[in-house]
């Protein structure tokens, strides 16, 4: 785990993991707003023409970004500039296999390391296809963040954890991003199950849109991932979204940071 991840998850409260799509709106300003509002970990989405695991909000963000001509080089420039402005905030790239591997996994991993990216989430490379990206990232010192889902059974979980780094992202609903939310009891049970299997921090996401939901999850998990709710704000306010992003981040961060009844 990189030092930035270790520091972010060593705080006495759960982490707010905030996702926005790169190149959608004024990304640099929005990233600064997330940090200013109290986000602990940043996920930067790499736009893709065919985001199979995403709901309507993030699909639209992908297409808006691509329509503006966002390239992979632009994404790494955004990441590198963020790293210069914010030396301590962990930065994760999240996206799909094809844009990540098209120039070779070694190229991608080296670019991540150069830009100061701490971790990578690739939606459509499960542990069975780890060779496509995992070894290159590990050589480059970049954490491969794996996803666990409600369908990941006990027999599979060790495979998912093998080679995983950074934190474990628990996808709390069998579904796509930004729509329905899981029942809190099922999240509680899942986090307990995952914690028994790994020392990695557990961040929970998919369908988390309000401070109330986030606070409930923060009582049991190490991190709460919010994405589509930010995307909605950017869709509404366009290039002038940063103040709204910062205000919403603060309500989420306050809820999450104050949620733990006892220190972890």
């Amino acid at each position: 785990m990189t030092n930035r991840f270790a520091a972010a998850f060593a705080k006495p409260h759960a982490a707010l993991v905030a996702f926005i799509t790169g190149g959608d709106g004024d990304t640099a300003a929005n990233l600064d707003a997330l940090v200013a509002g109290g986000a602990d970990v940043i996920e930067l989405g790499m736009p893709f023409t065919d985001p199979m695991a995403d709901g309507p909000a993030i699909q639209a963000a992908n297409l808006r970004s691509l329509a503006k001509g966002t390239t992979t080089a632009d994404l790494f420039a955004i990441a590198a500039a963020f790293r210069n402005r914010h030396p301590d905030t962990p930065l994760v790239l999240m996206g799909y296999a094809n844009p990540m591997t098209i120039r070779g996994a070694d190229w991608f991993a080296a670019e991540c390391a150069k830009a100061g990216v701490d971790g990578v989430i690739c939606v459509d490379i499960p542990s069975e296809e780890d060779g496509e990206l995992g070894p290159a990232l590990r050589v480059a010192g970049v954490d491969l963040i794996r996803l666990a889902t409600p369908t990941t059974d006990a027999a599979r979980l060790p495979d998912v954890l093998n080679g995983a780094g950074g934190f474990l992202y628990y996808v709390s609903v069998a579904g796509i991003t930004g729509l329905q939310q899981a029942a809190q009891t099922s999240i509680d049970e899942a986090v307990a199950r995952l914690k028994a299997a790994t020392d990695l921090p557990i961040a929970v996401g998919f369908g988390v849109r309000t401070p109330e939901q986030a606070a409930a999850i923060a009582k049991v998990a190490d991190g709460v991932v919010v994405g589509s709710a930010f995307i909605d704000i950017i869709a509404q306010h366009g290039d002038a979204a940063a103040p709204y992003v910062e205000a919403f981040t603060r309500t989420l961060a306050d809820a999450i940071h104050g949620a733990k009844e006892i220190a972890a």
């Binding site: 695991a53 499960p126 889902t149 369908t151 996808v171």
Partner: peptide, 12 residues
């Protein structure tokens, strides 16, 4: 070929 799918689908 291969199996490049989201983790949710992998068990299925």
């Amino acid at each position: 070929g291969g199996r490049y799918v989201a983790e949710t689908l992998m068990p299925l």
